[in-house]
Structure formats: C-alpha cells, structure tokens
Simulated scan of single mutants.
Amino acid sequence: MTSPSNPRDLRAELETLTTEAFRPELAEIDRLATLDIARLMNGEDAAVPTAVAQRLPQIAAAIDAIAERMARGGRLIYAGAGTAGRLGVLDASECPPTFNTDPSQVVGLIAGGPEAMVVSVEGAEDSKDLARTDLDGLALTPTDTVVGISASGRTPYAIGAVEHARKQGALTIGLSCNPDSALAAAAEHGIEIVVGRNSSPARRA
C-alpha cells in the first residue's frame, strides 16, 4: 500500500485511522498535574486487555497454525518498521533466554536493518522491495511463519513482507491496531487490536 502523493489526501487518509485520531478531551494533557497525567495514561492502558480479549479466537487460531509449522522445523519471523519493528526484534531476542529456543528459530526483521534499532532510517518503512530482499536473505520456506507488525496497518514494509511470504507459501499473520487494515487483509490471519479512540474509557465516558 502506497501513501497518497497529495498531502491533503494523505491527511484525509490518516484522519480515518483510529491510531491517528485526534482526541479533543486530551488536547491539554500537558497542563495537568503530573499525577493526573499518570492516572489518565494508566486508565487508557486499562483498555488494552479488553481489546485483546475480543480477539482471542483469532489469536488462538494463529498460535495453533504457528505451532504446527514450528513443529516441522519452521521459523517465526517478525517484520516491521520503526517501533513495531523494534518490538518484533525485542521479542525475538527474548525467546532464547526465556523459552530456550535456538537463536535462529525466532527472527526479527526491522526496516533499515540493525542500525534502525537505535537510529531512524528514513524511507525504509515505505519500501516493499526492502521487505522482499530481507526475507529472501533468510531463504524463506513454506514451513516458516511471517508476522507483519504495524500499528497503523498501512506500513508498506510490513505489508510487503506478508505479501511476499504468502507467495512463497509461508504462513502469514498481520498484526495491527486499526480495523479493516491493509495489513490484516494481506495476511491469512489478520489480528486487529483496536485500542484507540473508539475503545478507550475516556471516549466511552
């Protein structure tokens, strides 16, 4: 999915996304007392378990599908850009010490490569070709699973990774925080954890 070339079109597109929605009730959050800010953020965090609970059937189905492939020697590969990519790399790096997996069994790919873990690599997230190249470097097989991660669900790198992996016969999962995302649509298992404007306690109040 490519972004509109017209800035107005891009702004209009972003305004439809839950993750990009303006929250007028939070417009002056910086003027609140520190404790009130902490309480407000903690209250917003409380919406997350409920949002996850609503997607448990999809999550369980994805887990079963991943486990079946890993039992046949397949790998779990995360692919994302920016913060989403960093979280995938973090999870992959924690699997060996936490679950005693082989370091090659769970892999994290981030747009822009290892440097992007600590420094922003401009433009990397917008390249589907880069995702294909990164996956080809891993010699993807049909027993592997690729999980595209993107909060917005529209990041080309994550979508490109899922599209390419699916063509190679690998299992694909799209993880995002917006409903009806392009990433979820591109994957066999689309998991959308919507925790933004429409699901928060402040919005429901």
Rank of each mutant, 00 (worst) to 15 (best):
L17S: 08
G88K: 00
R69Q: 08
I110G: 07
R132I: 08
A131V: 02
S120C: 05
A65P: 00
A92R: 14
S127M: 04
R31C: 10
I59H: 00
P96E: 11
V121Y: 06
V146A: 05
L130I: 12
T34C: 15
S150K: 00
D180L: 12
G74K: 04
E115M: 11
P24C: 07
E68C: 11
L10V: 09
D45H: 03
G112C: 09
A184I: 02
T172R: 01
M41D: 03
R204S: 12
R11T: 10
D91Y: 07
R132Q: 13
A81H: 07
I59N: 00
E20M: 04
C177E: 00
L35Q: 14
E15W: 14
L175I: 11
C95A: 09
E115H: 14
E115Q: 12
P156M: 06
V48C: 10
R8V: 15
G113W: 00
T98W: 02
E25T: 11
G74H: 04
E94I: 06
R166T: 12
G153I: 00
A161S: 05
D180Y: 14
E188H: 15
S127V: 03
V89D: 03
V162C: 05
G74A: 03
P97I: 01
I59P: 02
L76A: 05
R203S: 13
A21M: 05
T19Y: 00
G137K: 05
A185F: 03
P4H: 01
V89G: 01
R75V: 05
Q58P: 09
L138Q: 00
A12G: 08
T34A: 14
N198R: 15
E192S: 07
A60R: 12
A46T: 09
T143C: 10
D134L: 14
S120W: 07
A47W: 05
S104F: 13
A51V: 04
V119T: 14
E192F: 02
G190D: 07
A139C: 14
R86D: 06
A131S: 01
L87P: 08
E13W: 15
G137T: 03
G112E: 10
F99M: 10
L35C: 11
A158F: 09
T16F: 06
A151T: 07
A81K: 06
